[in-house]
Design a protein around this nucleic acid. Structure first.
Lengths: 377, 377
DNA sequence: ATGAAAGCGCTAACAA
DNA sequence: TTGTTAGCGCTTTCAT
């Protein structure tokens, strides 16, 4: 058996050309005659040559690797996001170097590792980035895009969905449908996502004259099914019952639905429940969860465009992309009559009956309305 | 502002030492005096130097990068697996270069890309590996481990769970509990996982004298919730009803449960349903799915041990690790009395009452039995 | 313990 | 179009 990894020199020798000819043969659009290229290719094939991407990146100063740092890979949303991200980056000819912030771990400790691999850019969908590390990345000329989060005071580019607007829309729709007492299941206080959803919900209620402080019970669902289920079970067992619950993500909303049923309540007749994300499970008939869809495809597309664009042409202007969310009506919440709802949501078309229905094909049948979305440059 | 990425030479100049001293300072256990190291470190800090992992790997001939190729990132099981895999590899000081086989895409087309990055090993949890590509990897000395699959005729190392044994156990338990007519929801015919689960189930039935050909309706669930739900809806609407359904994964089993309920059946009273995987949703009270747990942690651990070990010390002996699965009883299936069930499963301890229960903490409360597991070297 | 020098596999500038 | 040459940033002999 031959030596393990043939180099361009060996190919060159075999093909009877110079080593740079080999390099050119593998460079699309390089100045080389078809005859030479053919010779090279056949020699390469013969000995199983394959260019060394690492060596190439040393001199081109680009690795075509994008670092992706995630901290919440236990959440469906991030799992889906990673799937799409990986697909899109690959289509763009880039590779994904994946880093996971371990539970209790530190993003700032991880980032130097990422940078050592000379990545062409970093996409961060994890905990908070310190402004020190952001500055370090900028100094090195490595573009950074925050995915699904913003960090106050850190001048990094970011892509998020309109968490505030979506949550505010939920508040409006619930009030218009006659709900008066609410439960809000919060995730973590220290994520921009969670904060904005909470703010949107409370401000939406307040804007319609609801005394949020008195009428909303805030629960901590720790972003988990179990956490939410237990909190809601507790809530329903003592004191006056809410007539609607808004979960800061779908998993928690589903925990709320199960809790409600365990407590003998019917959803949505006795209790309306709305979630956030539109994970695949929301469409399952056991839940038929009315929710806000985070448009993963669009979020990812924006993220990829940003990071690749920044590598080509660095910019010190901070870009913030905010993508509108979509209201997906299934069966878990009582809502205003369609005409009114449409007026509330700002005129998007509604093409479904208002009756709850099993949602096998929610994408086609359900009523949807877009939140405002904006792009801030 | 200074030049973007300081090199060891610049550090050396600033510290008044040679460039190799800088290298040594950053190499644990290298022969260098504390004084010199201190000088280097302070100079490095000053100009923000960080070793270039790419350059280093050129000469050490190891990148510390493991290629991970997945094709099924829409399935929870692989999402979870990736999460754990990434964590464990990071703990071992390795990085994950992630590749996704696009829908309809080709693993063999992807693998050369992986190899160009000079990865220290490849973990494959996607479609089928051709023996050509396997040979190519071996020729280059890049170890390959198949995750959750085996490919007949391809001499690659692999780690799987005991799909056959688990499925066979399901058949046994269902028959012993008195079930006689069955539905089996298959995934794809071309995955070793699917094949073995199917074989185990059918052979388990046959071994107990059930005429599988006559008593089992085989459905194609395309590994999806929707596919399974529709297939089961169809099944229940015409012809004699089965009294138990086994889904080749949890998502399909949950689709079956929803279909049964839509058809007005109670689970498990009218219909027993068992799944495979033990995804997080199985524990949700709406389903309380009785299922077989694929021990992700153990699968990943074995995979990581294998791939790292192989890189240190290549072996041409083919290693196949098969990890036992765990039977997790929740509430979706009627089962034999505990004593009998234990005898069937081969003596594993049972510490739960046989009554179905909401499964908030299934790990502690549920009854479990291990399938046989074996390790073949 | 330290520095000088060689070179990992490649691309890019230059000359021919 | 082609070959020659000079590095990319680092580790690793080999002297000292």
């Amino acid at each position: 058996m031959r030596s393990r990894r043939p180099s361009a020199i060996e190919v060159a020798r075999l093909a009877g050309v110079s080593q740079s000819a080999v390099s050119r043969a593998f460079t699309p659009g390089a100045s080389i005659s078809p005859a030479t290229r053919a010779k090279v290719m056949s020699a390469a094939e013969q000995i199983g040559y394959m260019p060394n991407a690492i060596a190439r990146s040393m001199i081109t100063r680009r690795t075509n690797i994008i670092g992706v740092v995630l901290g919440n890979l236990e959440y469906q949303f991030y799992q889906q996001a990673l799937r799409v991200l990986s697909l899109r980056l690959q289509e763009a000819g880039r590779q994904v170097l994946l880093f996971t912030v371990p539970p209790g771990g530190d993003l700032d400790a991880l980032l130097p590792q990422v940078l050592q691999y000379q990545v062409d850019g970093v996409i961060i969908g994890a905990a908070t980035l310190s402004s020190d590390m952001a500055a370090e990345c900028e100094r090195r000329g490595t573009p950074v895009v925050l995915f699904n989060r913003t960090v106050p005071g850190v001048p990094a580019h970011s892509v998020t969905s309109d968490n505030y607007g979506g949550a505010r829309l939920v508040a409006t729709l619930l009030v218009r449908a006659g709900h008066r007492r609410f439960g809000f299941i919060a995730g973590h206080r220290d994520t921009s996502t969670g904060i904005n959803r909470e703010r949107g919900f409370y401000e939406g209620l307040t804007a319609l004259g609801i005394d949020a402080a008195a009428q909303v019970v805030r629960m901590d669902g720790r972003y988990s099914y179990d956490g939410a289920r237990e909190a809601v079970l507790q809530l329903l067992s003592d004191g006056p019952r809410p007539d609607a619950i808004f979960g800061a993500n779908d998993m928690m909303a589903m925990g709320a639905i199960d809790a409600a049923r365990e407590a003998g309540l019917r959803v949505p007749d006795d209790l309306s429940v709305i979630g956030f994300d539109d994970t695949p499970q929301s469409a399952w008939t056991a839940y038929a969860l009315t929710t806000l869809r985070q448009p993963i495809e669009e979020l990812v597309e924006a993220t990829v465009d940003l990071i690749l664009g920044l590598h080509e042409q660095p910019s010190n202007r901070r870009t913030i992309v905010e993508v509108p969310v979509l209201f997906v009506e299934r069966g878990s919440a009582r809502l205003p009559r369609p005409e009114e709802a449409v007026a509330i949501a700002g005129g998007a078309r509604s093409d479904a009956a208002p009756v709850p229905e099993p949602a096998a094909k929610p994408a086609r049948k359900a009523e949807r309305r877009r939140s405002r979305g904006r792009k801030v440059a």
